[in-house]
Design a protein around this nucleic acid. Structure first.
Length: 840
RNA sequence: GCGAGCGUGGCGGAAUGGUAGACGCACUGGACUUAAAAUCCAGAGUCCGAUAAGGACGUGGGGGUUCAAGUCCCCCCGCUCGUACCA
């Protein structure tokens, strides 16, 4: 019988589903393991990134099940968001209809992959049964002071009359309208993540199973910095201008002040200074993206205001409005010390400002390091640390400043001016102000009859939905028409998976048992925002007493991207790999026969057309081949290249395995070892046990490609083993059965079918992970490299733990060693069981 | 701009500071076949050497620490991710 994945994969998928093989048990006494992959946005079809992510998670889930854990491995849909609205506008379909049909399709595809999900716990964030809980959470946050309303800057498209996402702003213009984007002030809801910044920062060090890089990124994102607040006195005014600095020690090098275009003082200046107003307007013609702002050319406008230097009498500092000062960081104002800061230096050179060095150095300015202070009156002679301390003391004494800690992290803006999101349960009343929707009126469900032909937010354009009576005074009032950022939904979905009860978001018992997620797996692009918001959200929920955990993810693994070769025609147009044919090592377009050139290997993206549809791979080779290739080539955290030849290699291997097991003789014997073990048998069993040990270690360390390589080696060994008698047969059957258990988490359909063909009645998914029999893997001899001056010149085999003198004696008998030892060695280094090095 | 990561044969990658290239892909030769595909067997980092023995070089580039560096330290180059309204 030939290996026919389309038949056996369907067969086992049906069995698993019928037997509920992967349903999490509600048995809170068994040790549990919660595996979770980042849930997908239902864009319409799965892509290779999903295949990779979910294959990794499935391997872990099946492996942990084999190790005896009660595994929770759920799946859901991150189904609110912009693409559904874009589809609604472009194809005139309702976002809900589009989304649900995408979910239906993708669910079929995930099932075809043979992923061991507990589908009973499936959730979709756009379902009122899910998002209803969020409205209660938000009101709890609101009452606890964690949620508040304030003004913020948004990208405004004056033609579309809409707020644009950063993604929708391309080179400062709206992606649909092409109109120049303006920054516009608008009110929105914020969550006080800054109140939790210290705890979020401090707890990072306890996330022992998180990648160091992710922890570093989160630390930097929170950006706690120590420094001073200095209140500069405005000339000819009693007002103060507070400025935050991490380097108060360089205050004597200050030669100017710069404030953000959004600073209240800038606004005040622009009331009387027409040119200042023009400059501020100019600064507003830029997107709100940090990268754009930072990369833009530095501009400043010199106002006619000055402040006095806090320590140098009769010294005035000019105030500039500058486009690179962010209102959201510190106080939105800085003092410029050009001698010791790169940006200040560039600015001073551009506007011909004084540059006063205050730290001794032989290097060119600006000098950014530490050193001894000069030109600094009472700070002269001090190092940076002492100077900062003394400066802050002086500020305190003079009552013009103080020690201050600031954070880079900003409060989380959760308002979106869009339809396809969870409605925010607030009512605006002219008499009563912001009024929370009474709990008895929850949930607020999105209206279905909406019109995308009118520009702007469909909820804002829906009078019956928007107009409402104030629950307090019964006067006319309006609903909040903003909806939540979709990060809101993804900040707690993992906790919801622990609960089946439709009437309450969580129960204490289930949370206590299942949380935290033991293994979370997803793209590194979520290293900061999604993961930090989730960590914050658990704290916020704890604060309002609805959940009792802090850290949602015990162990985190981030996966790399799936890349593929790109192809281009002579006219520089991208071509899909499926439209290409290879003839005599050259590539041609399938339809036009035009020659095609090979471009760089890049991340799979629709725009570059270097995508391979997982469906095609499943249809042509089966899910097991797709899964096996995903695991075999690259370590999970690195980018991988999808290659046709690699897939074919995996396909060939699975076929070889199939044929080998099918052709084994006497398959009905029990998978037990015979009583008598020959020397050859022992060799094979030694190999098996070494491989079990290595595969287990590789999986524990998330080096799945190594696990695959080890299993292949085991296969090569056992499949070339000469069977001469019944004993041999039994040993080979034994080893093969263990091999199948090892490979089951990778290619579960194939493993089930072969397991069955060995005469087993039970599903292989219920088998226990093999244990290492240490008695087989004790080594007697070891190979040791012999070096002369660090270069290997010979290899000797010696008994393990042989004493140093004897090793040296044996080494000195090697011809090639004697050849290089033309004089007596100066030093002989012998590391037992490792290496010998003669230094001459 | 800023923050973070990555860089090893023709290719994907392996390697507690201790024999660089496990395992695989592509390739080459052979077997089987009327032929091809599939399959099986063998070879292989590059260069010198005889196809041997053996040697030189070799982990993005440059420097350093060490008996010994892909691995640790410093500088540089290239690529990738994130940068707060894509998810």
């Amino acid at each position: 019988m030939k290996y026919n994945p389309s038949v056996i994969e369907k067969k086992w998928q049906r069995k698993w589903s019928k037997l509920n093989s992967f349903r999490a048990k509600i048995n809170y006494t068994k040790p549990k393991y919660y595996v979770l992959e980042m849930f997908p946005y239902p864009s319409g079809a799965i892509h290779m990134g999903h295949v990779r992510n979910y294959t990794l998670g499935d391997l872990v889930a099946r492996y942990k099940k084999a190790q005896g854990f009660n595994v929770l491995h759920p799946m859901g849909w991150d189904s609110f968001g912009l693409p559904a609205e874009n589809a609604a506008i472009e194809n005139n379909t309702h976002p809900a209809k589009w989304t649900y049909s995408n979910i239906e399709n993708m669910k079929i595809q995930l099932k075809q992959m043979g992923l061991s999900y507990d589908w009973e716990r499936e959730l979709s964030t756009c379902d009122p049964e899910y998002y209803k809980f969020e409205q209660k959470m938000f009101l709890d946050f609101y009452k606890a002071g964690i949620a508040y309303n304030k003004e913020t800057l948004v990208n405004w498209d004056p033609v579309e009359n809409t707020v644009l996402a950063n993604e929708q702003v391309v080179d400062g213009r709206g992606w649909r309208s092409g109109a120049e984007i303006e920054k516009k002030k608008m009110k929105g809801w914020f969550l006080k993540i800054s109140d939790f910044a210290d705890d979020l920062l401090n707890e990072i060090e306890n996330l022992n199973e998180w990648p160091e890089k992710v922890k570093t990124m989160q630390r930097n994102w929170i950006g706690k910095s120590y420094g001073a607040l200095i209140n500069f006195s405005l000339e000819k005014s009693s007002e103060k201008l507070p400025v935050f600095t991490t380097r108060p020690d360089t205050i004597f090098g200050a030669t100017f002040i710069a404030i953000s275009p959004q600073h209240p003082l800038a606004k005040q200046i622009s009331n009387t200074d027409f040119k200042a107003a023009e400059f501020i307007k100019f600064c507003e013609k830029n997107s709100t993206k940090e990268a754009d702002i930072e990369k833009a050319e530095k501009h400043g406008y010199e106002t006619n205001l000055t402040v006095s230097h806090p320590f140098k009498k009769n010294t005035k500092l000019k105030i500039f409005i500058a486009n690179f000062i962010l209102m959201d960081y510190g106080t939105g104002a800085i003092f410029g010390c050009p001698a010791h800061d790169q940006r200040d230096y560039d600015f001073a050179v551009k506007y011909s400002l004084d540059i006063i060095p205050v730290i001794e150095t032989k290097e060119n300015l600006p000098f950014l390091g530490d050193g001894i202070h000069m030109n600094s009156e009472f700070l002269n002679g001090l190092n940076t640390y002492d100077a900062i301390k003394l400066c802050i003391e002086k500020l305190n004494v003079l009552e013009i400043g103080e020690e201050k800690t600031t954070y880079r992290i900003r409060d989380w803006g959760v308002s979106r001016q869009r339809y396809w999101g969870c409605p925010i349960p607030i009512i605006f009343c002219n008499n009563c102000g912001e009024v929370p929707v009474p709990e008895k009126d929850l949930p607020i469900i999105l209206p279905e009859d909406i019109n995308f032909n009118i520009k702007g937010n469909p909820l804002d354009n829906h009078p019956e939905w928007k107009q409402i009576q104030c629950p307090i005074c019964n006067e006319k009032a309006t609903r909040e028409t903003d909806t939540f950022d979709t990060f809101f939904e993804s900040s707690w979905y993992f906790a919801r998976f622990t609960e089946l009860n439709p009437s309450s978001a969580f129960t204490e018992e289930a949370i206590k048992y299942w949380m935290p997620v033991d293994q979370y797996i997803g793209g590194v692009e979520h290293a900061v925002m999604h993961l930090l918001y989730s960590r914050f959200f658990m704290r916020a929920l704890k604060h309002v007493n609805s959940i009792d955990i802090k850290e949602p993810f015990a162990s985190l693994q981030t996966q790399g991207m799936v890349c593929h070769q790109t192809f281009k025609t002579k006219t520089d147009k991208w071509v899909f790999p499926s439209d290409i044919i290879k003839k005599n090592h050259k590539y041609f377009h399938l339809k036009t026969n035009e020659p095609v050139t090979i471009g760089r290997i890049e991340k799979m993206s629709k725009s570059k057309k270097n995508v391979v549809d997982p469906q095609q791979i499943i249809d042509n080779f089966g899910a097991d081949t797709a899964r096996f290739f995903m695991l075999s080539d690259s370590p999970p955290d690195r980018d991988m290249e999808w290659s046709d030849s690699g897939v074919e290699g995996s396909w060939r291997f699975l076929n070889k395995l199939w044929k080998f097991v099918q052709n084994l003789p006497n398959k009905n014997t029990k998978n037990k070892l015979p009583k008598r073990i020959t020397k050859q048998n022992k060799e094979l069993l030694t190999f098996l046990n070494t491989i079990i040990k290595d595969v287990t270690k590789a999986i524990d360390e998330f080096h799945f490609n190594i696990a695959v390589a080890q299993i292949r080696s085991l296969f090569n060994f056992v499949s070339s083993y000469k069977i001469e008698n019944d004993n041999d047969k039994q040993v080979v059957l034994f080893v093969t059965s263990k091999l199948l258990i090892l490979i089951n988490p990778m290619v579960p359909h194939l493993a089930e079918e072969l397991w069955y063909s060995l005469g087993n009645k039970n599903s292989i998914s219920n088998e226990c992970w093999p244990k290492v029999d240490l008695s087989y893997i004790k080594k007697d001899n070891i190979k040791m490299p012999i070096q002369v001056n660090g270069k290997v010149r010979a290899v000797i085999e010696v008994p393990i733990d042989l004493d140093k003198n004897k090793i040296e004696q044996i080494a000195l008998k090697e011809k090639n060693i004697l050849k290089f030892l033309n004089k007596a060695p100066k030093k002989v280094i012998i590391i037992p069981n490792r290496v010998v090095n003669f230094v001459i």
